[in-house]
Amino acid sequence: MLDNATAWTVLDAVLDPEVPVLSVVELGIVRAVSVDAMTGAADVVVTPTYSGCPATEVIADAIRDALLAAGATQVAVRTQLEPAWTTDWLAPGAAEKLRAYGIAPPGARADGAAVVRFVPRRPPCPRCGSRATEQLSRFGATACKALYRCTDCREPFEHFKPI
């Protein structure tokens, strides 16, 4: 029978479809998992990253499929909005995995800070480590990323936006 600890392990192998080096657990969107010891039914609470993130439904399906395959009798995936997801919830090893994949990880978020205009955030290049980087596009291929380039190694890269 599936137990809570095993369920967490199973979910730690379910990868985010847009950032396929991080699991949904490492991404910090799985808030709670409980498996009913009597019935084997699993209840998973997920907090979405962005309101309109198109991957949300794909992730819920992947969670459901993985837990059913691991022996859950049924799976309920519920959405919890509060507290809102933040990049602070990324697992400790997530930054290094992102960097190795070519995505600059989010730095500390500036929560509640006033909008500072024309002060560029400069994530270091994930390929060569240079801080000589510039923003190409504030919005990227997914809601959670922006596009940058390194002016030293000349490579473009994505930056996981801190929120």
């Binding site: 979405p48 309101s51 909005l81 509060e82």
Partner: peptide, 27 residues
């Protein structure tokens, strides 16, 4: 209203980013 507060704390982060991006274009 906890449901509304939940939507609000999520949405405020998005709105800040929209205001920042569009504000730079206004300037």
């Amino acid at each position: 209203d906890a449901d509304v507060a939940g939507i609000a704390v999520r949405s405020v982060k998005e709105a800040r980013y929209h205001a920042e991006h569009s504000g730079e274009w206004v300037i």
